[in-house]
Nucleic acid binder design. Structure first.
Lengths: 139, 139
DNA sequence: TAAATTAACTTGCAAAAAACAAGTTAATTT
DNA sequence: AAATTAACTTGTTTTTTGCAAGTTAATTTA
């Protein structure tokens, strides 16, 4: 499977890579929910199908948004982590959260978080970014 | 056609609405490329299929991201414009542009624009937002 | 003013992608 | 040694997309 570039517009090119219903949820799970393995991704509330998950993981890897590593605790597991490119999607996710929080029905927990975010977006983003970058090798 | 909400996570909910390869390109065309009619959308570089365009327009309208109005110059045309909710997607688009500009191959025009954006994101966003909001009625 | 063109769709069909259920293989736990 | 877990793969059905063509109302052209 290959990614076709529909045009040279940056928005279009970004959507060529992460513009589907699942890719950013995997990024979210690694970035915000402490998930790093296939089965953890499968257990998320949105219920991605196993074959779709496998496909998205390989696409995200090919796009250099995630990398596979050996799991520190078990050879049976694979540890998926974000690259710098993947971590750099944080501001996109933040803006999606802020938008959803204002215009869509979301959980009360999300509303509370959105409140804090709206107030201190810059600071929270910078702080999260720093933490995330601490744990990678491909800086 | 209905939108199914996969979970109450804000990111997931946002993607339920705009997480496909075409919706945000229509928003982009209205927001940044001065397009407002069906045929103008069709002529974009990404070449959306007519039936998909019709479907997306009706979804975006149902989601209250765009509205239909009569075209000021012709009864044969329909004038699509963004609602406040649609305009509020600007920061998402801005972050997508910044990400693409740094990590994907894009046109040199986009690179130049990205430079300016990176330097003055806040200011540019605020300014664009103000301009866009000036022309709507559903504030 | 009849004929051609434009605008916004709709329809039908083939191809691609997603959802769903089940099966495989290696590593780990019981 | 047997059962379970982890990461996939395979086969099938359903849904979505892409493509070509056709429809209807409004507008422009000859």
């Amino acid at each position: 499977m290959k990614i076709k570039q529909r045009s040279d517009c940056p928005i279009s090119s970004a959507l060529d890579v992460i513009g589907d219903k699942w890719s950013l949820l995997i990024v979210r799970d690694i970035m915000m929910n402490g998930k790093n393995t296939y089965n953890e991704f499968l257990k998320s509330n949105e219920k991605i199908a196993t074959n779709v998950l496998a496909d998205r993981l390989s696409m995200l890897e090919k796009s250099d948004i995630i990398t596979k590593e050996e799991h520190p605790e078990s050879k049976a597991k694979i540890y998926y982590k974000l690259t710098k490119k993947g971590i750099s999607l944080l501001p996109v996710l933040i803006e999606l959260i802020l938008w959803a929080d204002e215009y869509l029905p979301v959980s009360s927990a999300a509303i509370t978080y959105g409140y804090a975010l709206k107030k201190d977006k810059e600071k929270i983003t910078r702080q999260m970014m720093r933490t995330l970058l601490k744990h990678i090798s491909d800086k």
